[in-house]
């Protein structure tokens, strides 16, 4: 993929991530603070097909843009720490243990670390670590949503495989 195409693709992904992030904020959930983490589909997909730098770019841009639309500085701080932590964990897992681990497990780890990071920011912000009583609920939700995200990414990669194969052939010519 050449530079312009890559940039175009990257901005499309950022746009999709922002839209997903905003829409999923409107979906009611069972417990307070639990999120579906659907925007993680885009981050993980970018990590798999584009690379780790692009995944980080997407998560940072997504957080900045969606906190401009809704929320303020505290919300931004809250989601950027969670997002970065979860992405770094996923990048490490994917880069070093790619052969021994499935995509769903990577995304489950990402979801769990997202929640741990968010709780950490909340605990520091309100200066009360008792907020960690929410951890069990968030862990369970992280496992479920993370697994779902992993399955979605697997489907997405499967359907995009042809596109990237064609792209590579064109580059070779």
């Amino acid at each position: 993929m050449n530079k312009t195409k890559k940039m175009f693709f990257l901005s499309l992904l950022v746009g999709m991530a922002v839209v997903i992030h905003i829409i999923e904020g409107q979906i009611p959930v069972l417990f307070p603070g639990v999120k579906l983490g659907l925007a993680n589909i885009i981050s993980l997909f970018a990590l798999l097909v584009l690379g780790w730098k692009e995944a980080l770019v997407i998560v940072v841009l997504r957080t900045i843009i969606s906190s401009i639309y809704g929320g303020g500085f505290s919300v931004f701080l809250f989601s950027i720490v969670g997002g970065l932590l979860s992405n770094i964990v996923m990048i490490i897992l994917y880069k070093f243990f790619k052969d021994g681990i499935s995509i769903s497990s990577i995304s489950v780890c990402g979801a769990i670390f997202h929640n741990i990071g968010q709780l950490f920011v909340a605990a520091v912000y309100i200066q009360d670590f008792k907020i960690y009583i929410y951890l069990p609920v968030l862990l369970i939700s992280g496992v479920i949503t993370g697994f779902f995200v992993g399955v979605s990414v697997k489907f997405l990669c499967y359907h995009f495989k042809d596109m990237f194969a064609k792209e590579r052939r064109r580059d070779d010519l």
Binding site: F97, G100, I101, S102, S105, I112, P136, L139, I140
Partner: peptide, 26 residues
């Protein structure tokens, strides 16, 4: 299931048990 998946599963289960226990103790 690959080897890494099992490790992840065990770690998550351990984390769950520990967090549940600490909430109960709390």
């Amino acid at each position: 299931m690959k080897k890494g998946d099992k490790i992840v599963l065990m770690t998550v289960l351990a984390l769950l048990v520990v967090s549940f226990l600490s909430v109960i103790i709390y």
